[in-house]
Design a protein around this nucleic acid. Sequence first.
DNA 1: CTATACATACATACTGGTCGGTATGTTTAT
DNA 2: ATAAACATACCGACCAGTATGTATGTATAG
Lengths: 199, 199
Amino acid sequence: MVDRDPDKTRQALLFAAFTEINQNGFQAASLNNILKETAVTKGALYHHFPSKLELGYAVVDELIWGNVKESWVTPLIDVDNIIDALLSMIDRSIEYRNEDNICFGCPLNNLAQEMSPIDEGFRERINHIFDQWRAAITDGLIEGQANSIVKKTISAEASAYFIVAAIEGATSLAKNAKSVDVLRTSLQGLKEHIQTLRK
Amino acid sequence: MVDRDPDKTRQALLFAAFTEINQNGFQAASLNNILKETAVTKGALYHHFPSKLELGYAVVDELIWGNVKESWVTPLIDVDNIIDALLSMIDRSIEYRNEDNICFGCPLNNLAQEMSPIDEGFRERINHIFDQWRAAITDGLIEGQANSIVKKTISAEASAYFIVAAIEGATSLAKNAKSVDVLRTSLQGLKEHIQTLRK
DNA sequence: CTATACATACATACTGGTCGGTATGTTTAT
DNA sequence: ATAAACATACCGACCAGTATGTATGTATAG
């Protein structure tokens, strides 16, 4: 980094930190590795972020939240049929995976598992993202009930919890098994469940 | 440890390592903390285990597998009605949780998330446990189909994948939310799904 | 000129792991 | 029976390496 473009430097650090964290976890993520990857010096890093912890927080607030929003929240906003939207969202998440990236799992869940018992700052930030995600599903289901697309007998909130849980669980299993097939098979049950919510 | 009881020393190390790992993850687990906790010296530890890695493997193979077997495998062996067995197994896992232990999540899933992309030894061991667990569910469902307790139209294997995924996902969400209610709500959908497998 | 952006060298704490040595127990030879 | 030989269990100081973080300096843009 010689170009003296602070915004670019910051973004480069964030992205490298995201990758390093996603591969090794936050605690084992090495600042030196991040610096090596970006060719940024330690002084520059500590100019942009006061500590490793704050760098991690920024990764969650900016990069991870951006990813979740794009993949799991925006696709559910203002859709005609929430059931179809959920199903195609799940299909896209399967199509996105291949044998090379399946092993990294869900960045949000990875960090959640590692850091939520240790650091309250991480936990709150991650929990907020889960809340937004789940709220998007809940709202969609409620609207679907109003539009006679979704059964009125089900609890939208409970269904949203279950859907998020099943997606995260399936991603976890597939990560551990290093298998897209495991992801597909695990999510098949979820898709069938979602079909039963249809009016 | 002055009592010169090698088996007791080994078990104490394993248990302390399990706790330390469950709270901090494997990489951040400190051998010195484990030694402090058990009052075992470093020499003694390295007498029993050749490396930190092998200590971690032993925790998985012995302690974690023991827990999973007791809570999730044995309860499904030789049962009259697999559907009822699954439902009460899930209920027990909810009852076991309280506001103090909910934040630790599932030890198996914790380790899986952290270590499976980094270390193949961990991944294989953890995957083996998941396999045993899933196999117990699959076998139960197949037997249930033979005994006309479970619908013959469903795929026992796919259902087993989905059930494990949903349980792990729900435990993860609850861990992050620090809430038994989140666990209960998330698993409610799973219980309803399991009911639909009944013939 | 001054604040911002970055560079370099260093401080400090902690990590897993090693190594020489000791204490206790068990086997074996006479 | 008993001394010698050996094995197991454990001790704790110490090592090299690495971690994050800091102190101080320089270059540059406005």
